[in-house]
Amino acid sequence: MTDPSTAEIRTFIVDNFLFGDENHPLTDDTSLIENDLIDSTGILELVAFLEQRFAIAVNDSDIVPANLDSIARISSFVGGRLGQSNSAAN
């Protein structure tokens, strides 16, 4: 089962970069850059969404394709950050 954050990230991408087109063959591993789904403004929109929705801090150095170029990578990045927050809280 897809974890809730992955589903939310997917919904955000479909709504904002595919404008609701559910027919697009978007998999969790689809590269957003190589498939022309995102531009520089889109990256900033994505970062703003992640910070607001998941209450995580995204540093400038985090904004790299290795963290943000697919649903799976974003989900993993968010998961990592949320894990860090939880560890810090404990």
Partner: peptide, 21 residues
Amino acid sequence: YLPALQQQTPEYLAAFFGAGL
């Protein structure tokens, strides 16, 4: 004159402009 571009990391800049692709 493109503010969104000014805020990108080198990795994303290279990716946006297809450098290497």
